[in-house]
Design a protein around this nucleic acid. Structure first.
Lengths: 192, 192
DNA sequence: TTAAAACGTTGACTATAGTTAAGAAATGAA
DNA sequence: TTCATTTCTTAACTATAGTCAACGTTTTAA
């Protein structure tokens, strides 16, 4: 399993043997079974995750119903916006499948950055990459209609439709399940 | 003007005299007059900005009309999602006011990180901060209705309403100017 | 295996946003 | 100042999403 992580990291930096060893030894890979709640509203977030296998969902509780804002799958990094900050999380993180992930913490990060300064460069670069992604996602979200967002999602992450219930997808698209149902119907009719 | 930047940086790291000098000497502070286009669709982005005074708008051109996705004002960092990447920008950056900004480039960044490694830590931390902000903004956007988004904007950035035309605000909220007009009217009636 | 719960679709109705067009108000340039 | 342009509002109408309720299907757990 470590190799997936190492493969990913080596896209951005050269992995020395020493670093390779440190990663293998640190053994921070954990298994979580479906339904595990990694973070609850109100909790402090002290862990971040790199998903090796599985799927994690981020959602908010708004007046009793769940608003899904993100799905994280293989090779994605899960960092709560409250991670490492001393403020309670406003959202939940939940495994929607059995999940294997490499788990980090501010302490581990600090130690690793100290031992391997190249990792801090990596973290900066990865942070930039993730930030542009959020930036683009936000822009896309503002620009596109619900129907267009659904089509884009189908194109960009076709696997999600098979992996998570449709009402969570609807919520992720910012609409109600009934509306997604109707959008799908509308598209089927257009197709003909 | 530099002091604003230095003040901002010192929130996150200790500024040594040497670094202070380097910042003052590098003289990368520039003035842009209202209407200046900092980046156009199709261009490569080689500059990032820290706004000392003024306002920059990010927008996309979608079938002939402008979709505003961001406003950057004092003490905010403007980084196109294509900055430093070798791919053409999909959006525009335009000064909506006379603007004074500290201008950075990948080359300058690299040089400064080399001379002052603490700056790379800073960049990582700032990247994290900005990322959480985008994350939260995206979540808010998905959770809230246009009306709620408008109310949140009024609360979070009341100055914007005075600084930019309302149709750009509408676009920023993901709605048409006519709809924003109606929302405002609706809210006035509720208030009574 | 079966009963309960969760999920997806549909229909009728409501609320709100988009579209088009017109005109009033504010802004900017000659 | 004055004219032209941009911006904002309003109205009528259309399209789409939200709400509520019902129902059939699928999944889950006892």
């Amino acid at each position: 399993m470590e190799e997936i992580l190492i493969n990913y990291l080596s896209k951005y930096i050269t992995i020395t043997d020493e670093l390779l060893l440190a990663i293998k030894e640190s053994g921070f890979i954990k298994n979580f079974s479906k339904g595990t709640v990694l973070l609850s509203e109100g909790d402090l977030s002290n862990e971040c995750y790199f998903i090796l296998k599985g799927c994690v969902r981020c959602y908010y509780n708004k007046d009793g119903d769940e608003k899904t804002t993100d799905f994280y799958t293989e090779e994605q990094v899960v960092i709560s916006s409250s991670y490492g900050k001393n403020k309670p999380s406003e959202h939940y993180l939940e495994c929607v499948e059995d999940t294997v992930a490499s788990v980090g913490s501010p302490e581990l990060e600090a130690e690793m950055y100290h031992r391997f300064p190249q990792l801090e460069s990596l973290a900066r670069i990865l942070g930039d990459v993730m930030m542009s992604k959020y930036q683009d996602t936000l822009a896309e979200y503002k620009i596109a209609s619900p129907e267009e967002r659904y089509l884009n999602l189908l194109k960009d992450r076709p696997d999600l439709m098979q992996r998570v219930p449709q009402h969570q997808i609807a919520s992720y698209l910012g609409i109600k399940p009934e509306s997604l149902s109707r959008i799908r119907k509308r598209l089927l009719n257009k197709q003909k």
